[in-house]
Design a protein around this nucleic acid. Structure first.
Lengths: 127, 127
DNA sequence: ACCCATAGTATCCTTTCGGTAAGTACCGAA
DNA sequence: TTCGGTACTTACCGAAAGGATACTATGGGT
């Protein structure tokens, strides 16, 4: 085994950093926001909230700030009243969205297998 | 905008299910275990624990059980004493590992950009 | 003088996460 | 008879995530 199509001989120090970055970035809301911004381009806060189904204002602010810090989105504040703030992906954010595309497609393609497996597992252990 | 290289016209009901699956699967420990099993093939519980750096016994049991339920790993119990339990990825698990490969490579390739962005962000808002 | 809209903060509170530590079952070896 | 080795399970507890709600700042319109 170990013959998967990617390098396995990575510096463990780098591996640790990568794990940390993935843990940060592979969060539910980050992926949703990433997806929404990838599909719709630049969006204002309230529109982004409406499109990110189920997110709370607090979580959206938090998510989008962390993404800005990581260089995934740019946040443009227009000094007007009422406030107008626009969010869009950076090149880095777009490249991450493309990387996640594989996971997204995998999930879509295997939805039924996963649910079938869950049902089988549950009826195996519960009466 | 919206000209990203994947379909955007998905049934919202499916989209919701996909989000749920991704949320389930894109968990820190699941990704670590997935990676370890992809690299090492079949492993016993204690070896898997040792290779999944930083995980507790409880979390490993929990993670691996959820993965079994979702059909990502098979758990083989050998009825011997002391107990011997082996874990390996299913085809579904392997395909997920491959899908995440893109994210992994992205993280490895952009580590420095991310940390640079964080440093810049932090020195911009903190004194 | 008052109201509105937007993009937040701040606060409270509940749920979940996750670590430690202890207990369990089993049988063969000493 | 007691010990050891493996793979758990259970109980407990503090930390952190995350939802709901209320509050803030601002200036233009009426």
């Amino acid at each position: 085994m170990g013959d998967l199509p990617w390098p396995t001989d990575i510096d463990p120090r780098v591996e640790e950093l990568v794990t940390e970055v993935i843990g940060r970035v592979a969060d539910k809301w980050t992926m949703v926001v990433l997806d929404v911004l990838a599909e719709h381009g630049e969006l204002r806060f309230s529109r982004l909230a409406a499109l990110s189904d189920g997110i709370s204002q607090k979580m959206l602010t938090q998510t989008v700030r962390a993404m800005e810090r990581d260089g995934l989105v740019v946040r443009t504040v227009h000094p007007v009243v009422p406030p107008r703030v626009e969010y869009r992906l950076t090149d880095l954010g777009i490249s991450l969205a493309q990387a996640f595309c594989g996971v997204w497609l995998w999930a879509a393609a295997n939805l039924e297998r996963i649910h079938a497996s869950r049902d089988a597992f549950d009826s195996r252990i519960l009466p």
